[in-house]
Amino acid sequence: MNTIKSSEILEKLRLRKFEVLEQIDDHYRSVFMRWAAKRFSATPNDLEDAWQEALVIFYEKVTNGELTELHCAAQTWLFATAGNYLRNMNRKMRRVIWHDEVDKVLAGKNNTVEFSDPEPEGKRKLLLSAMEKISEKCRELLRARYFDGFSIPEMMQNFQMGSENSTSAQLSKCMAGLREHIQKLQKDHGA
């Protein structure tokens, strides 16, 4: 991983090369666990959640074009983001101050992520249930569009759909199906 520059990591992630994320995970997961365990009063599960959250956000931000360059090493960005997640989880959490790259990134308000309160758990579950009810094909298309950040032309190419219009129409159909399920679930839950 040391031989891969941050710019290369970003470039590969922009192409949705999941294996880059795997490489980062393999190289830095245990380093992060040791680093964070010394800094935060948190359970191993909390640390695990924070690390995964940081990886997912990193992927999302790069693929949707929000993160186009890094002002620090990729692992430093990830550690800082995971650190922010842990701090947000428990604002009174004790943090031991050390002088290292991560502290500089946190202090410098670089392009890391500040976490706000997540979606209410009830709404989150309802939306995820609705996603489970649509066809696998639609689920794949909607994820590609709204999570992986594929544009319509990219989707047309990747999913070998005839034209941009038909891609858009297919997505619209999937959205309509999802919307029906959301409405039905909301009605069932009296929302």
Binding site: V56, E60, E119, R124, L127, L128, A130, M131, R139, L142, R143, R145, Y146, F147, D148, L178, I182
Partner: peptide, 8 residues
């Protein structure tokens, strides 16, 4: 949001 949460 549902698609995004599902992807995550």
């Amino acid at each position: 949001l549902a698609a995004r949460l599902d992807g995550r």
